[in-house]
Simulated assay, not measured.
Amino acid sequence: MSLKARITEDMKTAMKARETDRLATIRLLLAAIKQKEVDERVELDDVAVAAVIEKMVKQRRDSISQYQAAQRPDLAEKEQAEINELQVYMPQQLSAEEVAAAVDAAVAKHGAAPASMGKIMGELKGALAGRADMTEVNKLVKARLA
């Protein structure tokens, strides 16, 4: 079963169980997937669906930091609940040690010069996409190159 089909089935289950918050999050996700399909005129595969989910999670993390800065913990909790629901569909996340090992291997392959940052990040984005927070990977690469 494809990831998109699984999400659709979960939407039907949430409807039957009357889980309104979960249903709203799943509908947002399906709308984002459908929008991407219409914009690009393609049927998204599991990798592209995971990229849409990753983008939505990143947007919600940004919102949480802004809500916390504005002293709005109620809205931050709502965004966190949406993140928790979206992460169900993400692939298994890598541990910090696995991410560090991948960064070290990429730095060793391309050299520890700051000019090779783009090559290193390009390789890591392909290898770790959806399985690690790329913001944290970027920070780790910068620390290794400094």
Rank of each mutant, 00 (worst) to 15 (best):
K16P: 00
V52C: 12
D104E: 15
Q93D: 05
V52W: 03
Q93C: 02
A132Q: 02
L30M: 11
L28D: 15
M1I: 04
L145D: 04
K78A: 13
M15H: 13
D46S: 02
A69D: 07
E43I: 14
D39F: 09
K139V: 12
L86T: 01
L23E: 12
A76Y: 03
Q80H: 06
M134L: 15
Q80F: 04
K12W: 05
Q68T: 08
L44H: 03
V88W: 05
A105Y: 00
L28C: 09
Q66M: 13
A105I: 01
I83Q: 06
Q68H: 06
V107T: 06
K4A: 04
N84Y: 00
K16D: 12
A132T: 02
S65V: 14
L128A: 03
L140Y: 07
R22Q: 11
A17M: 11
K119M: 12
V52N: 06
A146F: 06
A105L: 01
D10H: 14
R60A: 12
M11A: 10
S63E: 14
D74H: 04
V49F: 08
A143L: 11
A48Y: 00
Q92I: 07
K34C: 02
G111S: 00
A115E: 11
A24N: 09
A143M: 07
I26L: 15
Q35W: 00
K125A: 08
N138F: 15
A100K: 13
V107Q: 03
L23M: 13
L128Q: 07
A132G: 00
Q59A: 15
D10I: 01
R41K: 13
K4N: 09
L28K: 13
I33Y: 02
S116E: 14
N138M: 12
A102V: 09
I64N: 06
V103L: 06
A81R: 10
M15S: 08
K4M: 01
M15I: 10
A129I: 02
R144L: 04
E136A: 15
L29T: 06
M1L: 07
V107A: 00
M90Q: 13
V141E: 07
A105K: 15
L140A: 14
E77S: 13
T8Q: 15
Q93A: 11
M1T: 08
G130F: 07
D74E: 15
T13M: 10
M11F: 14
L28E: 15
V107K: 04
R131T: 13
L29S: 03
A143Y: 04
A5V: 07
M56C: 03
A69L: 11
T135W: 10
E77D: 15
P91L: 02
E97I: 06
A76G: 08
Q80C: 01
Y67E: 14
S2P: 12
A50H: 06
A100H: 05
K12V: 09
L75F: 01
A112N: 14
I120S: 00
R131D: 08
N138H: 13
A31H: 04
E37V: 03
D21F: 09
A14K: 08
K119G: 10
A105N: 09
